[in-house]
């Protein structure tokens, strides 16, 4: 991978685009058609009440499990990005520690129904009220707002795939050992995105997508801040029942 000439040939760009799109499709937790079909399957009042009646630590644990599942699909996605497995293990871990949650948030917009502000969770659609017992309403509102703004861009699955790869392959992450190599991967992915947006006649999206990156970073800091708040109150829950992968990534 590192010996690719720059600028990459059109053939290389197209092969890279195809590969990223395939990786995204093969590692999506839910297919778009599946989500579309379930779009109006909403939680009943009783079911919402049951979620709201959970204790703070029960609901945190429940969400940590769901989030960890989503992250595992992102890890698979990362592994299939051309060049990712050629990076040193330390750099692969660094990119996932800082980027997997961001990709989960981008992917979440596929599971979002803007018509009624609900998200697909546990097999049905629910609004922010479902997550009330987490005790972090501001984070949930911010996450839902972000999903709204992502949906407003109306990305195709191909554009979404490329954007997710750009979010993950970020040479600005601290502690990278071979920043040059990550930078070269990123540069080729940027060429791919420009090529795709040009082909789709949607070049104006590029700037809007780059603006999303800072929002993603602030959402992730808010998540870590909330986790810190929670773990000070319920250290045993985090220690003994949270998924080990969640702890490795976020604590």
């Amino acid at each position: 991978y590192p010996y690719c000439p720059y600028p990459p040939s059109l053939l290389h760009i197209e092969e890279l685009c195809d590969s990223i799109v395939r990786s995204h499709r093969d590692t999506s937790q839910f297919r778009l058609e599946e989500l579309q079909a379930l779009r109006w399957k909403l939680f009943s009042r009783e079911e919402i009440h049951a979620y709201q009646s959970k204790s703070v630590d029960e609901m945190w644990q429940h969400c940590a499990v769901r989030l960890t599942e989503a992250v595992q699909y992102v890890v698979e996605f990362a592994k299939r990005i051309p060049g990712f497995r050629g990076l040193g293990q330390n750099d692969q871990i660094t990119l996932l520690k800082t980027g997997s949650m961001e990709v989960v948030l981008v992917r979440m917009s596929r599971c979002f129904n803007t018509e009624n502000s609900t998200v697909f969770f546990d097999g049905k659609f629910g609004s922010t009220e479902l997550f009330k017992s987490l005790g972090c309403g501001d984070l949930m509102v911010a996450v839902f707002d972000f999903a709204h703004s992502m949906c407003a861009l109306r990305l195709t699955e191909q554009q979404m795939a490329l954007f997710c790869s750009l979010v993950l392959i970020n040479p600005d992450r601290p502690c990278l050992e071979d920043r040059g190599r990550v930078h070269r991967m990123r540069r080729d992915l940027e060429v791919c995105l420009s090529h795709m947006l040009h082909r789709d006649n949607q070049e104006s999206l590029q700037h809007k997508l780059y603006q999303k990156v800072s929002v993603l970073q602030s959402l992730c800091s808010l998540h870590v801040e909330k986790l810190h708040w929670f773990s000070q109150r319920y250290p045993l829950t985090v220690h003994s029942v949270f998924p080990p992968l969640y702890k490795e990534l976020f604590t």
């Binding site: 890890v75 497995r85 490795e248």
Partner: peptide
């Protein structure tokens, strides 16, 4: 440290 991540990264993709 990062035991699970190491394992996930080492598993070959199916």
């Amino acid at each position: 440290k990062h035991k699970i991540l190491h394992r996930l990264l080492q598993n070959s993709t199916s």
